[in-house]
Amino acid sequence: MIKGHARRGGKKMRKERQKNCIVGITDEYRTSKVCIYCFQDVRMARSRRMIKGKSKMVRVHGALECINPACPSFKEGYTIKARDPHAAAAIAIAGACVLLSTLHKALPPFSPDQSEELQR
């Protein structure tokens, strides 16, 4: 017990879940920093706000924006997305790619080994 809470996670949680369904563990590397449509980097969304009578650009916490003009979502005007659902979809894509690939490796944007080679 941790301050009145049961210890959850890791091996114990996997064993409990495996009784009822298939459990997959996925590396979350870069899943919140990559657009799920074009696999390019995203940034925090920005908005113009009036602060003390002056117009300023501020970051919108909890929202991501893809700035790649070739991205399908950019072309459709769907550039700003909520951060948590976007990261959850990216984790699902990374996990599905690992399960379905013959080499059991993630796509290059979600793989620590391959993304370092792409940045060079």
Rank of each mutant, 00 (worst) to 15 (best):
K33D: 13
K33I: 00
K33M: 11
K33S: 14
C35Y: 06
Y37G: 01
F39S: 06
D41I: 00
D41P: 05
D41V: 01
R43A: 05
R43E: 08
M44Q: 09
M44D: 06
M44H: 10
M44R: 08
A45G: 00
R46A: 03
R46Y: 02
S47Q: 08
R49D: 08
M50Q: 06
M50E: 13
I51A: 00
K52W: 05
K52V: 03
G53W: 09
K54R: 13
S55Y: 10
S55P: 03
S55L: 11
K56V: 15
K56I: 15
M57L: 14
M57A: 09
R59V: 04
V60R: 05
H61K: 15
G62P: 13
G62Q: 11
A63C: 09
A63T: 12
A63H: 13
N68L: 09
P69W: 13
P72D: 07
P72F: 05
P72A: 09
S73H: 11
Y78L: 13
I80F: 00
A82G: 06
R83Y: 01
R83V: 01
R83L: 08
P85E: 04
A87W: 00
A87E: 00
A88S: 14
A89M: 08
A89Q: 10
A89V: 10
I91C: 01
I93V: 10
A96M: 10
A96R: 14
A96N: 11
C97A: 14
L99C: 11
